[in-house]
Amino acid sequence: MSADLIPSLIHLTGMLLLAAALAIIASPQLFACIRLYAAHSFLLAATTILVACHEGVTHLWIPALLTLLLKVIVIPQVFFRMIRRLGIRREVESYINIPFSLILAVALLFLSFYGTAHLPGLSGVEEREFIPMAAATVFWGMLMMATRKKALTQIVGLLLMENGLFLMAITLTSGMPLLVELGIFFDVLVGVIIMGVFVFKIRDAFEGIDVDDLTVLKG
């Protein structure tokens, strides 16, 4: 039972990760978007713990707990703080509407599925399953960054990409060396803070965080 249960739970969390990432793309409100990002990160931590149990790699627990601490609690709080200080309510504006971006997302999922079908050197079942999922998550992050008008949702897109990369690293290599992991987490945190400062600067310069306004900087 137990030997059977963990792989099926890994499958389930994998699918839920996809669903949560799609929900981030589909959500019309910034608050919901960030909460969903927290949920996505939580699922990522759950996947990490399950993989750790399944493969018997104990040092994966540390990145899992760090994910839980940093991406589920700290980064959303930083975001909420930014939103409060910027005084914005609902700020998800996109160049394309939600159903169309969902269709694009599914097309990207197909692309990553068929694109990774014949990669050499993949052996384990989990690797074969999670490579397309992780690639799709990275693509979706890119999609968000490319189609959103506001800086905050673009940051969420970047974080989604990072989550995809993390998923790929966890399932492909059973975890990188601890030092590298810590470096990445630190990078993400500092990245978010720097981008937060950047958002405030955009707001001060243009009285809004619509990145379209940046085009007026051209000579």
């Binding site: 799609l22 599914v106 052996s123 074969r128 999922m133």
Partner: peptide, 24 residues
């Protein structure tokens, strides 16, 4: 939008079966 979520979930589950059941 709500129905699009249903559609995407169904599509995702269809595709998920392809991914997870994929022969190596």
């Amino acid at each position: 939008d709500l129905i699009a979520i249903a559609f995407v979930l169904a599509l995702l589950s269809l595709l998920g079966q392809l991914i997870i059941g994929r022969p190596s």
